[in-house]
Simulated assay, not measured.
Amino acid sequence: MNTANMLRLVALAAIWGGSFLFMRISAPVLGPAVLIEYRLAFAALFLALVGWVLSRRGKGAALGVRRHWKHYLILGVFNSALPFMLFAFAARTLSASVLAVLNATAPLWGALVGAVWARQPVSPRGALGLLLGAGGVALLVGFDHATERPGAGLAVCATLAAAFSYSIASQYAKSAPSVAPFANAHGSMWAGAIVVLPLVPFMPSPGAPTIGIMGAVLALGVVCSGIAYIIYFKLIEEVGTTSALTVTFLSPIFGILWGALFLHEVIGWHTIVGSAIVLLGTALVTGFKPRFMRAAPAAGK
């Protein structure tokens, strides 16, 4: 991985880690439905603008809605609307650091979903990873002061359900119709916005948004969804899916860092140890190995 792609990877981790900071700021004021409708709508409009620019340059970014609308709807629900809503619900109670670490359990859920969906047996290494992941979550949740707040148990369940939703989307994508990555991002954002819109009248904002709150919402939509997807798909194009997924291990670090810097969240020993155990479990489940741990090529090859 060259320097440019390494910088893209770190930038993506910083952006996705920052999404939990922005949700923690805005969710208590706007509520889940209004916040996520704004996020999805801003992301869809931004990606529509990018698509228009691409089409002007002759690179093509047609969605093919009539042909792929069901595909966009499934992705929009399980990869955007549902997990975003669950995270926003949990962000009213949990800290940004806890949200970021629990989000890293998505590959662990993915192993379980794959075992059921695709009948892929879990290897002993994967089983150990699942046990470690569960232990890391238990340690993090058991000792973090944020989980002592009223409704924290339900918020933790919602966060884990959001990570589970991502794993469903990932499994679906493996057998989904062949659609360009940018079209997947663009179409799923519009589908997610349409799905969430009917919920807004029934889940109004509990408070009045300020300029700062709307700034956080705009950052969630444009930066954490729109720009982040562009960087992510560029990484996949440049270095492949496996290397791009390294962001899973980096984004919790930034989630914890941003929470400590801007929200003055306390980084306790349980935060560090629990995060490390969760990420180790994720590494075992995904088979991830840093470059320096991989076997060196034989001489002459």
Rank of each mutant, 00 (worst) to 15 (best):
M1I: 09
N2W: 04
T3I: 12
T3S: 09
M6C: 11
M6P: 00
L7P: 04
V10K: 10
L12W: 06
L12E: 04
A14G: 11
G17H: 03
F22T: 04
R24G: 00
L30C: 06
L30K: 05
P32H: 13
P32T: 07
V34S: 07
L35M: 15
L35Y: 01
I36R: 01
E37S: 11
E37C: 13
E37R: 02
E37I: 08
Y38Q: 13
F42P: 06
A43R: 08
A43H: 02
L45H: 09
L49I: 15
V53A: 15
A62G: 14
L63N: 05
G64A: 10
V65H: 12
R66D: 10
R66M: 10
R66C: 09
R67E: 15
H68C: 07
H68P: 03
H71L: 05
L73Y: 08
I74K: 05
I74C: 10
L75S: 10
L82G: 02
L86H: 09
T93I: 14
S95A: 13
S95P: 01
A96M: 00
V98R: 03
A100T: 05
V101R: 00
V101E: 01
N103C: 07
A104K: 06
A104E: 04
G110W: 00
A111P: 05
A115H: 11
A127S: 08
L128Q: 08
G129Q: 08
L132A: 13
A134H: 11
G136W: 01
G136E: 08
A138T: 12
L139R: 04
V141K: 13
G142H: 10
D144C: 04
D144Y: 01
D144V: 11
H145I: 12
T147P: 06
A152Q: 05
A152C: 11
A158H: 07
A158N: 09
T159W: 01
A161K: 05
I168C: 06
I168V: 15
A169K: 00
Q171W: 09
Y172E: 14
K174C: 05
A183W: 07
N184W: 03
A185R: 01
H186E: 10
G187E: 03
S188F: 03
A191Q: 07
G192T: 06
G192N: 05
A193C: 08
A193W: 07
I194N: 08
V195Y: 01
V200Y: 02
P209S: 12
I211W: 15
G221F: 06
V222F: 08
F233I: 14
G240Q: 03
T248F: 14
S251C: 07
S251V: 11
P252I: 02
F262Y: 13
L263N: 02
I267W: 04
W269D: 00
T271L: 01
V273M: 00
S275M: 14
A276N: 00
V278F: 03
V278S: 05
L280W: 06
G281P: 01
T282C: 11
L284K: 09
V285P: 01
F288A: 13
K289V: 05
P290L: 04
F292L: 07
A296F: 01
A296P: 01
A298Q: 14
A299K: 14
G300W: 04
